[in-house]
Structures are given as C-alpha cells and as structure tokens.
Design a protein around this nucleic acid. Structure first.
Lengths: 134, 134
DNA sequence: ATTAGTGCAAAGGATTTGCATAAAG
DNA sequence: CTTTATGCAAATCCTTTGCACTAAT
C-alpha cells in the first residue's frame, strides 16, 4: 500500500520549514493551480488564508524555487513571472486567445537542432503558440 | 546594380516618420546590435546621439515593434525585454555562461509536436540553453 | 534564549504616461 | 497654423528589502 506524501513531508524533505503560511501556499500550488503568478497566489491566499503579506508570498515562492520545488517562467505575452509546479523539463502551449498555458510533456515534442559542434545543449524549451479549437 | 534601402526608406515604408532620433536608434539596431535592452539602446544613444530621453527610446522601440520592424522578447534569465531586429520566425540559443543570445535560423531547428488535433499551432519558438565551447 | 519567519511599509528597477515645449508638415 | 514628436518628471507595476515583531526550536 502506497503512502501519499504530505506537503509537510515534501517541504521537510527539501529542507524547508513547513510553516502554516508555506503549507497553505503549497496547497494551492500543488493542488491544481495552473501557472499562477504571485498575484494569483496572493488572491487565493486572501480568500483561503487571510492576513498573509505579499512579501511572504514572494518569499515563499522564491524559497520554493531555490529549493527546486517550483520553477519560474517568463513568457512573451506577460511581463510577470509565472510559477510552474512541474519541475521536470517540459514544453508549453500558449493559447493566444485565452492566455492559458498548458504543459506539454517532453515526450510530446521532439526538437532536433542542427548546430555546430561547439554548441553544447543543456536544456531545450519550446513554446507552441496557437489556439485550441473546440 | 542593387540599391541598399536606407533607414529613412525603411521607416517611411513602415509608416513611421523618420525623425533624427528614430533614425539614430535604428542605426544602432539595424547595424549589428545584438538583442539589446532599452537600457542598451539608451547607453548607445548617450554616447552617439546625446540628449535623447529614455521616454523617446521606449516610445521609438514600441513604435518599431507595433509597426513590425522589431520584435520584443523575454527570456527566463532576465526580466527585461530584449529587442530583436530579426522579425522572421526563428529560434534562440542562450549561452548560460555569458548570457549571450544567438539567433538560430528556423531551418536549423526542427520541432515536431504530437498534439491532439484541437491544438492549432501558429508559432513555434524554441530556446536552446547551453554553452558554446571554444 | 536564540534562530527563523512574518508583516508592513518603503525602496527598487523597468516601463509607461501626462503634460508642456519644440519641431515638422 | 496644426499636428506630431520630444523631454522631463511623475506615476505605475512587479518585485525585493529593511526592520520591528512574532513564533518557532
């Protein structure tokens, strides 16, 4: 029988003290938030865990990033940072109508770059921009 | 014999009045500036065409973008906008040591995305992150 | 007790805006 | 003359920081 890791455990394992504020933020992040901005996190917190300051939101997000639990991303269409719980390398689809960002598993996108041999490639990130019909 | 298009002509053709400030900025941009930020443009102007305000630099850059002579790009490693004279679709290599950005012709990078048919793809942009040896 | 986390308000950097002046058509 | 561009300073947006306060170990 398999044991689901709690947020406290995930934080502890990453070396982050699991305070109430941090757990609340992680609850939002790890339970389905889709590429939220700091402001999105703040707004969710205001509704679900009031009295947390914006500074704590930023501190916590940066802490999670620096401990590898979160990635920060920037896209062309928005000058704000968005956070991605998906820390595994992957790509993104950006719906140009709605602004919605969708993670694309690395296996779904094949990138073949024919560069001169002095270019060592360490990471590849593709953004597909378009529209989802339907 | 082929006639090289002047900056004035390029601006006029795009419907932009070719003022002295705009021409100077375009001279910097179109003659080899590599993915400059607004601040880079301002600094070049301070040296080569003093007394131009930062507001005019931003106004001009935005004007060029809105008329299709320039693209604005944002990358993960820098929260500032960088401008790209290359308005044809292409990809980028980011040297993670130096921060240098290198344009990659679209033909050099093949992207194959296996998405569900409701995803209409209009643009593809790949960033390759790594290091250039040598 | 000592260290670490939080909240608030202020500061910071990048970019935009309002408005008066200057230049262009 | 009338419109458009410029310069300056102030304003705005996002994010970070300093510092006093609180809560953990």
């Amino acid at each position: 029988m398999m044991h689901t890791t709690t947020i406290e455990e995930q934080l502890a394992k990453a070396g982050i003290q699991p305070t109430a504020q941090r757990i609340a933020i992680c609850r939002f992040l790890f339970e389905g938030a889709n590429h939220p901005t700091a402001e999105d996190v703040k707004q969710w917190m205001d509704r679900n865990f009031p009295k947390v300051s914006l500074a704590t939101v930023y501190n916590t997000l940066n802490l999670l990033v620096s401990h590898g639990l979160l990635k920060e991303l920037r896209f062309q269409h928005d000058d704000r940072v968005v956070f991605d719980v998906n820390t595994v390398p992957h790509h993104h689809f950006l719906d140009e109508d709605t602004g919605e960002l969708i993670d694309l598993d690395e296996a779904l996108v094949t990138v073949d770059a024919r560069l001169a041999p002095e270019y060592e490639i360490h990471q590849v990130h593709t953004v597909l921009i378009g529209r989802r019909r339907g």
